[in-house]
Amino acid sequence: MANRTQKIIQNALSRGQSALSEYESKRVLAAYGIPISKELLVTSASQARAAAKKIGYPIVLKACSPNETHKTEKGLVVVNLSNQKELNLAWLSLGKKAGKSYKGAWLVQEMVKGSREIMIGMHRDPGFGPAVMFGLGGIFTEILQDVVFRVAPLRKRDASDMLRGIRAKKILNEIRGLPAANREILTHTLMAVGQIALDHPDIAEIDINPMIIRGAKAVAVDGLIMFSES
């Protein structure tokens, strides 16, 4: 596992990247058994159409490049495309926004639906080492700062403590017709993120935000792995 992911990371570092692209980041996450959204990397409109067909509408179209770590802020994401016509239009408008200089690829991704968003991350503390983070996802991460940390390696008990450690912990319960979130997936993801950091000292930050709880099961919808400056 570490070998496979080490190759992705080494290649990126040798290309001078300061981060993995979303696609590369998610290969690493998936290699550690973290559930990720179905997605295909494309470079042309016809590839995008084929990918969308394979994944099944509705889909999301995103810019995917290691240099494009703020794609949402730049408007380089269009969600909930429900047919080929919408995809074609989105392809043109995103291409225009990205500009001629954009050298990156595009990601065609399944549209993961769920009303609960969480975040799981890792910050490599200079003293304590990899600190795994859990909190509310999306814009609430920043607004409420409702997050907890534990230092890797995490025991299962540490991971379960984290799920109970945020103020908004009830979000994982059965609530308003939604099923209780599958805690196994979440504890596994927390422990895996810690393990990725332990296995790969080049990684400074991991940011899975949002992880959307679809039904009971959490899926990493966006993922970013950043390297230490050296």
């Binding site: 910050h123 503390d125 200079p126 304590f128 940390f149």
Partner: peptide, 13 residues
């Protein structure tokens, strides 16, 4: 000072 929240989690562990 290290990030207080990291310290909090770490010492609990």
């Amino acid at each position: 000072a290290a990030d207080g929240r990291i310290v909090e989690g770490a010492i609990m562990q």
